[in-house]
């Protein structure tokens, strides 16, 4: 088991004592197979217990440890040290306010997620005795990739539109709305449209595509957003040219 000498440059911020964030450098010895999260845990356990950051599963399924690593939004548990040379710069996830060290305030995303109603609104409500809702593999595949979102918010950090226009609902929220819209059991598309078809919804997107590039679960939120745009356009024409048709 070989080891490496690594230097991490971490952006620190203590709201009780600091006016603004500043970098702190840590020089440590790491094992070759470590990820950035292992290095952070090592620092916290042995060098500096005051370093604060979020993490949980350490296997890229919970979405807690999103942060900027050498300027790229990544999951700290999925960023292998061996892929980096020189000093590794670790910063809190971009486009969110910094609470403390690497911990960001994620309230904006949580609120936007709620607004798109990311839950089943059944087309035909079934009584429990009537049994399960049934779905074919084809119906599942229609929405499956959008259900893989782990709410890690790397897409928000990558999206320049979200950075410049904080009102923008953002990639993950729209992708999750789209997940439910595509679900054959669901009848809530009309209820979600006012949010995702609004100006701050899909129309703020200019298809940069960075969100899909950084997504660790290959959800492809960019694709979802364009599909929402097309659907919204069809809706608009239907509403104005054939208002007697239900959405």
């Amino acid at each position: 088991m070989s080891e490496r000498a690594i230097e991490l440059e971490v952006l620190r911020y203590n709201p009780e004592t600091d006016r603004e964030p500043a970098f702190q450098r840590y020089a440590i010895t790491c094992r070759e197979e470590w990820v950035v999260l292992d290095a952070l845990n090592h620092i916290k356990e042995n060098v500096d217990p005051t370093l604060s950051y979020r993490w949980s599963c350490h296997m890229a399924v919970c979405g807690s440890c999103g942060m900027m690593i050498n300027g790229e939004p990544k999951l700290a548990c999925k960023a292998f040290l061996r892929e980096y040379t020189g000093v590794i710069r670790v910063e809190p996830l971009r486009h969110f306010p910094v609470e403390r060290d690497l911990v960001t305030v994620i309230d904006d995303f949580m609120e936007k997620l709620k607004r798109v109603r990311p839950y089943l609104m059944p087309k035909d409500v079934k009584a429990l005795e009537a049994g399960e809702y049934r779905q074919t593999p084809a119906q599942l595949n229609r929405f499956k990739q959008y259900s893989m979102c782990i709410n890690c918010m790397l897409c928000y950090a990558a999206c320049p539109e979200y950075g410049l226009i904080p009102k923008y609902i953002g990639p993950a929220a729209i992708a999750l709305a789209h997940r439910w819209n595509q679900d054959s059991r669901d009848g809530g598309r009309a209820a979600r449209q006012p949010e995702i078809a609004a100006t701050e919804g899909a129309w703020e997107c200019s298809f940069v595509g960075a969100c899909s590039e950084v997504c660790p679960e290959h959800v492809d939120p960019a694709g979802a957003i364009q599909q929402v745009k097309i659907r919204s356009t069809v809706d608009w024409y239907q509403e104005h040219l054939m208002p007697w048709l239900k959405k």
Partner: peptide, 29 residues
């Protein structure tokens, strides 16, 4: 609790942060 979240300013340098953003701006240009 003495919270004081810090908002990092967003400047135009985002374009040069990664080749994908440069390519995007060329496309838009």
């Amino acid at each position: 609790m003495s919270r004081k979240p810090y908002v990092r300013p967003v400047t135009a340098e985002w374009i040069f942060r990664h080749p994908r953003y440069v390519r995007y701006m060329v496309r838009e240009f």
